[in-house]
Amino acid sequence: MPDRTPTRGRQAARERIAAKRAAEQEAERLRRRRRTQLVTGVAVAAAVVVAVLVAVLVQSARTDTGDAVAPANTAAGTAETGFARGSADAPVVVDVYEDYLCPACRAFEEAAGDTLDQLVADGEVVVRHRPVAILDRLSDDEYSTRAAGAAAVVADAAGVDAFATFSGLLFAQQPAEGGPGLTDDELIALAAQAGATGDDVEAGIRDRRFGDWVAEATDRASRDGLTGTPWILVDGDPLASPTVQALTAAVEAARG
């Protein structure tokens, strides 16, 4: 056994210093870790903020339809997003927002189509048809957008009456949600049946000439308050439910 007696004091002092140094090192280590964590945290937060801003910019650019080309024969007062049937002097304005893939729209057309035709023929109302595309996610091939775009091509080439005929054909042959829509060839055949023919019509349907216009019309409708279709406005007031009774009652009331 070595005799430690003479060195005991120095030994204790050395241990105290070592302990102090270890404590300082531990504190320094903790400080550094906290610092690293703070810096990383700020960096992550900043990255998230940047990602959010980039997403807003990119998605805004994707939804920008400022350079959309509108078809001919759109009605006044619809910002080039609607086609009017009936006399512009008619006392009551009925706006009909429909998606060609929407079953409730087809049901409305079947139930109220004749009534609307009669009201138009009698000069009681002007109907503004405003195709929108909100159901692309329920279609394998963006049928809502393609059908509305094809309707715009027909209106552009052959006028509003051809558009109305084409709309009726589209609703009569409406595909089911969740699957493929009518093909471009089928749309072109129906367009011809409605009175719109020629290479230009064919190219307009195939190339989705009015695809941006459909997006713009849909976005405008959404900003105006559309949350679903059919959305029927009588002199600007939406019908609570799209029924013939509600429609005729609202038209009566609007006529005063």
């Binding site: 959010v52 801003l53 997403a55 807003v56 990119v58 998605q59 805004s60 994707r62 939804t63 909100i134 692309d136 996610r137 997006a215 849909t218 976005d219 959404s222 900003r223 949350t227």
Partner: peptide, 25 residues
């Protein structure tokens, strides 16, 4: 993104100016 904006608007809560931030951000 257009559908996302429509989904936000359907709540009829956010002012139009905030819709893109909510729908895209």
């Amino acid at each position: 993104p257009a559908a996302a904006e429509r989904a936000v608007r359907a709540y009829q809560l956010a002012p139009e100016a905030l819709v893109p931030l909510l729908a895209f951000g």
